[in-house]
Design a protein around this nucleic acid. Structure first.
Lengths: 108, 108
DNA sequence: AGAACATTTGGCTATTATGCCAAATGAAGG
DNA sequence: CCTTCATTTGGCATAATAGCCAAATGTTCT
């Protein structure tokens, strides 16, 4: 058992914050939801968003850096895939938590 | 069953984003963790943070607006309480999700 | 090689978030 | 009522984020 140093604590906080920050944007959250069922190429994703392609690309890039999605090239297109589908269940949990204020919701 | 309009979708996204944004800051996340076991007054919380009291106060105020904590006055002090303890389990889940990439983690 | 397509990157501006200080508020006690 | 203690609020300077356009990259097809 490591002695949990202040630095390690800080590191742990920052890791979590990185993921939260990545998800904390309407467009990015929408993108993640689109990837829940299947992988998609950038052009498909862009169609559903009211923003420049370059903007969407940057959002996806940010999600990739956060480890939430991965990408793979297939011909001219690049496909994005959700690495951790369970994150979305977590978001439903957030809503339930706030609405019901039930301490034991979300299965823990 | 309501027909899920584009506006409603947007609203749902924004609600979730509001919570994520509130949690997406190292100090605020730390504050929330401190409140996991018991309520605390501002002075207790301030002791553990390297930041001005006024800064901590603003963070707490932001968390309150997001519906994550509530506050109550007792004499000179104001006590903050975590409204939804299960949110923290969710955060552990984030870590597990990213480390293990297990689709079915987090119990969903 | 050159054109066409899909996506990313650079750069710039506008908006938003952060954090400190100082001043204001509110409660308790002399 | 005046002081002290705990906390919040206002204001401001600085940093981080978002989004658009234009240019660059990488791929396929001819």
């Amino acid at each position: 058992m490591k002695p949990t140093t202040a630095q390690a604590q800080q590191q742990r906080l920052n890791n979590r914050v990185a993921v939260l920050k990545a998800l904390a944007h309407p467009t990015r959250l929408w993108l993640v939801e689109q990837l829940e069922q299947q992988e998609r190429c950038v052009c498909e994703l862009t169609d559903g968003v009211d923003a420049d392609i370059s903007t969407v690309s940057k959002h996806l890039s940010l999600l990739r850096q956060a480890g939430i999605v991965t990408s793979r090239r297939e011909g001219k297109q690049i496909y994005y895939r959700l690495e951790t589908p369970c994150l979305l269940g977590m978001l439903t949990c957030i809503e339930t938590a706030l609405e019901t204020k039930t301490p034991g919701c979300c299965g823990n």
